[in-house]
Design a protein around this nucleic acid. Structure first.
Length: 482
DNA sequence: TTTTGAGTTGTTCGA
DNA sequence: GTCGAACAACTCAAA
């Protein structure tokens, strides 16, 4: 009897799973395995919010597999050693998996492939996390694209729509030993996860419910509504995609299906699809430039006068910078493990450009607190905001948190949700409490500096300084080159 | 081959 | 109040 092992990683789903699909076609017995070996991903092992999600996602997957008559074999220990052990226990002929494309995973997988081969076990790797395999989209010179528009044109030219693979109807059981999800100790020791529980339902079933909501309600107004943090105008699919409870191919198929039924405008469809395009671009970029998770892609920015400012960093992390939109965003992140996209840009611009704190420190905080933490997207987008990445925002593009707040949360609905201490302030002063007259502060029950902090830095001055630093680097470079 | 124009998400200033 | 220009530098594709 032929036996295959399917090694799941960030593809915690049964439908549209190429490795699982192939393994089932090729054998009578298929063993589905999850191996917990976070240290292999260091220094980017899952953060606290990701571990919370992983716990619930594994439970959901265990339940789904059980209902098909088998079980998810959970093990702990080094992946290589554990896989070899499983191969000999089960007399498996082959191991199938969907690749992760982070530098750590690529290095590890290379060693695993060699070891399997030398043990006489074959291996079969697939792409289950991206529309296109990294490395497959190159410009005419055979090099990676450095601007998004060209990349996305090429990606679309190669085709995006493939019918997702079906989930298995039944799975054959086995009697291998397996550990419980709880034994992985992924949940926090102190119970800080109430907010996560209130806001999220991990698991593939819930992923599809949210995908349905996207197509049914969110997509049509998406191009405009996505900018307003008080509205549920974005897809909220990011954690499901990060853990592979949903594949991007499934999302595209659902979008195209909705489009074909004339239920949405083409531009709403394109607009959302582009977001998947940025996800692809980020992943392809990390594949081509593996140092991008830790170092500026554009090295001249290393010379900027980055500040070591632990107290500002702490205030930012805790949501007490004195700028309401920043603090609301950071508290939303802390409470729910997620932050609205536009607010992510605002808080990132604030800490890197006004605060002059290295983007990597911001990226680390997001990494620990986001349920959708994804190495490629996180580092790419931090570099985008900081101006150090590929096709990044121009350096002079510095968000003004007051203007952004007034523009995208005019009535302060989002601010009041996350900053209850400011809730009584009239709309006029909700974005700038320090400008409110004393009698209004009194009437709103706010003592500035006690109930809510005064601004932690001077926006205009820090902006001028940042631009001046950039100019200094520019003229230095010009001198060098001339 | 060379040139030209366009390119996710912004802000400020002056007319 | 609104509008256009200026604020880089560089990649890529089309002409």
């Amino acid at each position: 009897m032929k036996t295959n092992i399917v090694w799941l990683q960030r593809d915690l789903r049964l439908a549209d799973n190429p490795a699982l699909h192939e393994a089932l076609q090729q054998a009578e017995q298929t063993i589905i395995v999850y191996i917990h070996a976070p240290q292999e991903l260091a220094p980017w092992q899952p953060g606290a919010a990701s571990r919370w999600w992983l716990h619930h996602s594994l439970e959901a997957l265990q339940q789904a597999i059980t209902s098909l008559g088998a079980k998810l074999i959970i093990r702990q220990g080094p992946s290589l050693h554990t896989l070899l052990g499983l191969c000999s226990e089960s007399k498996a002929d082959a191991v199938y998996w969907n690749q992760c494309y982070t530098p750590q995973a690529i290095r590890r997988d290379q060693a695993i492939r060699e070891a399997l081969t030398s043990c006489g076990v074959s291996h079969h790797c697939y792409n289950g996390s991206l529309l296109h395999t990294p490395g497959s989209i190159l410009n005419k010179e055979g090099k990676p694209y450095r601007v998004f528009a060209a990349f996305w044109n090429a990606a679309q030219g190669l085709g995006l729509g493939q019918t997702p693979l079906a989930a298995p109807q039944r799975l054959a059981d086995n009697d291998l030993h397996f550990e419980s999800v709880a034994s992985l100790r992924l949940l926090p020791k102190i119970q800080w996860d109430n907010g996560l529980r209130q806001h999220w339902r991990p698991g593939a079933v819930n992923a599809h419910k949210q995908l349905y909501r996207l197509c049914d309600e969110i997509l049509n107004p998406y191009p405009e509504a996505r900018d307003y943090p008080a509205i549920e105008g974005t897809s909220r699919l990011s954690p499901y995609l990060a853990f592979g409870e949903l594949s991007p191919g499934q999302v595209v198929a659902a979008l195209l299906d909705t489009f074909m039924n004339c239920a949405i405008h083409g531009n709403a469809c394109d607009s959302f699809m582009r977001q998947l395009g940025w996800r692809e671009f980020a992943h392809h970029t990390l594949y081509h430039f593996p140092e991008a998770s830790d170092q500026a892609l554009n090295s001249r920015f290393a010379q900027l006068p980055w500040q070591n400012n632990p107290s500002l960093l702490k205030a930012w992390q805790q949501g007490r910078t004195g700028y309401p939109i920043i603090d609301a965003g950071m508290r939303e992140l802390w409470h729910t493990g997620w932050m609205h996209n536009r607010v992510r840009m605002i808080v990132a611009s604030f800490i890197t450009k006004n605060g002059m704190i290295p983007w990597l420190l911001g990226a680390r905080w997001f990494w620990d607190t986001l349920v959708d933490a994804d190495l490629a997207s996180n580092s790419f987008n931090w570099q985008w905001v900081a101006g150090t990445g590929l096709d990044a925002a121009p350096y002079f593009r510095i968000f003004n948190p007051i203007r952004q707040s007034q523009k995208f949360d005019k009535q302060g609905c989002y601010l009041r949700r996350w900053l209850p201490e400011l809730a009584a302030l009239p709309d006029e002063y909700i974005h700038t409490p320090w400008q409110a007259p004393a009698n209004i502060l009194n009437a709103s029950n706010i003592r500035l500096g006690i109930d809510y902090p005064r601004p932690s830095l001077d926006l205009a001055m820090t902006r001028r300084n940042a631009l001046a630093s950039f100019d200094a680097i520019k003229s230095k470079l010009n001198k060098h080159s001339s």
